[in-house]
């Protein structure tokens, strides 16, 4: 991948957002939207606090951006997100015309850009977008593991085993390894 350091710089910012999510007991997924080298929006997962299962990092950031900017801005904007966008976010991003998506690790439970489905490039009335995975993949996975361990420590004894099983669920199994950068 060209300009790898450039992309890593923004992914580091996304990881900072994910760390913030971890501190507030949210699944640690974070993202930044970048236009002309400038971060125009940041988001972290907010499903637990909002009691809304759709408040993923990407949608939280889009919500923030749209308060100030027109939706047309996404056509010139790239997304950096620590975990592959889910099927929902992958579709919403496509409907906004996002330029490209860079992500850390795959999401094999409901990934929408290669982990489970390929919403970014399937036949659709909306323009497809390219995705690039694997930037700081290990860091993204470590954050998720820390989250599940943290949740396990809070859970009462009998639930421990069940909760512990969760921790590998996010890891790619059938489709292993990010696509080439």
């Amino acid at each position: 991948m060209e300009k790898r350091e450039y992309h890593e710089w923004y992914m580091r910012e996304a990881i900072k957002m994910a760390e913030g999510a971890l501190r507030s007991d949210e699944t640690p997924v974070g993202c930044v939207f970048v236009r002309d080298g400038k971060i125009i929006g940041r988001g972290m997962n907010d499903t637990n606090k909002s009691l809304n299962g759709t408040r993923h990092a990407e949608l939280v950031a889009i919500g923030q951006i749209l308060q100030k900017q027109p939706a047309t801005i996404f056509k010139e904007t790239d997304l950096y997100v620590t975990v592959e966008p889910c099927v929902m976010c992958a579709s919403i991003l496509r409907q906004y015309g996002i330029r490209a998506v860079y992500f850390g690790c795959y999401n094999d439970r409901f990934g929408g850009t290669g982990g489970v489905l390929t919403i970014h490039e399937d036949p659709s009335v909306d323009k497809p977008y390219p995705v690039y995975g694997g930037i700081f993949r290990e860091e993204a996975i470590m954050l998720l593991r820390r989250f599940y361990v943290q949740e396990n420590d809070k859970a009462p004894e009998p639930r421990q085993k069940k909760a512990r099983e969760l921790k590998t669920e996010i890891l790619p199994s059938e489709i292993a390894g990010p696509r080439e950068l």
């Binding site: 809304n52 299962g53 759709t54 889910c86 099927v87 929902m88 976010c89 992958a90 579709s91 919403i92 409907q95 409901f110 929408g112 919403i119």
Partner: peptide, 11 residues
């Protein structure tokens, strides 16, 4: 759409 259908599943 795909976004709304998956939002319903997430919910």
């Amino acid at each position: 759409c795909v976004g709304c259908a998956m939002a319903a599943l997430h919910s």
